[in-house]
């Protein structure tokens, strides 16, 4: 698993609630049997004016200039600011794969769907939950100061201006994150390897459990 410690980067504002994983990466791209290469099709139906399909030369496709990720400097964004219930719907891990492949390392929203939230951590992406009011203020900040950067630090659980000269525009924000999520993301450990350390405990549980439930 990829670690996350700190990231400094441009914040892209995606001003929509209930962004579902079908929008993050449409179904036709789920036919791939790889984990990489989904970035060009991130938000495919919003980013392009034509219909996308696997294997297409995306550099030739007509772009939707109104979509935030097609506007400079957001093509270089590393942090996504969005609204509530981000990542709802399908459990497809292709969604965080696509966000990661595009270059996003951190997503800030008032709430996330459970499965998506979980999948982010498996891929070194930090989802940060703030209050609706905090998110609203950040939307004002980054739309009024296009290209504004944040520095997100996981150890100290803080968000601040990425550029020292802009620090007067943003008071440092403290964010909460469940302790187990924080420690595993900081270390970027191989979670399966970590679990297999406890193989004896799992085996002992299994033996007792199956003798109590012999039909399983």
């Amino acid at each position: 698993m990829k670690a996350f410690t700190q990231v400094t980067g441009i914040v892209a504002p995606l001003d929509r609630a209930n962004v579902d994983t079908d929008q993050i990466i449409p179904k036709q791209f789920l036919k791939s049997i790889q984990r990489t290469g989904f970035g060009p099709n991130l938000f495919d139906e919003w980013r392009y004016l034509d219909q996308g399909f696997p294997g297409q030369d995306y550099t030739q496709r007509p772009l939707n200039k109104d979509f935030v990720l097609n506007q400079e400097p957001y093509t270089q964004a590393k942090i996504l600011l969005t609204r509530q219930n981000f990542g709802c719907g399908s459990s497809r891990e292709h969604a965080p794969w696509a966000l990661d492949d595009f270059g996003f390392r951190c997503i800030i929203a008032p709430s996330f769907a459970d499965i998506f939230y979980n999948n982010c951590f498996k891929n070194g992406i930090l989802p940060i939950q703030l209050t609706e009011e905090q998110v609203e203020n950040l939307f004002h900040l980054v739309t009024e100061n296009k290209g504004f950067t944040f520095t997100v630090d996981l150890e100290s659980q803080t968000i601040k201006a990425g550029d020292e000269s802009q620090s007067h525009l943003l008071d440092e924000i403290k964010f909460d994150i469940p302790a187990p999520r924080k420690s595993s993301l900081l270390k970027g450990l191989d979670e399966i390897g970590e679990t297999l350390v406890h193989s004896d405990v799992i085996r002992a549980f299994e033996e007792k459990y199956h003798s109590a439930n012999p039909w399983l």
Binding site: R35, E93, P96, I115, N118, K122, P180, I192
Partner: peptide
Amino acid sequence: AHGIGTSEVEHVLATQCLVQTKS
């Protein structure tokens, strides 16, 4: 019963367990 991502599919195949926090 609940849905999981592909990393967790691999985790279950290899360990028969999932790392969870209670809802």
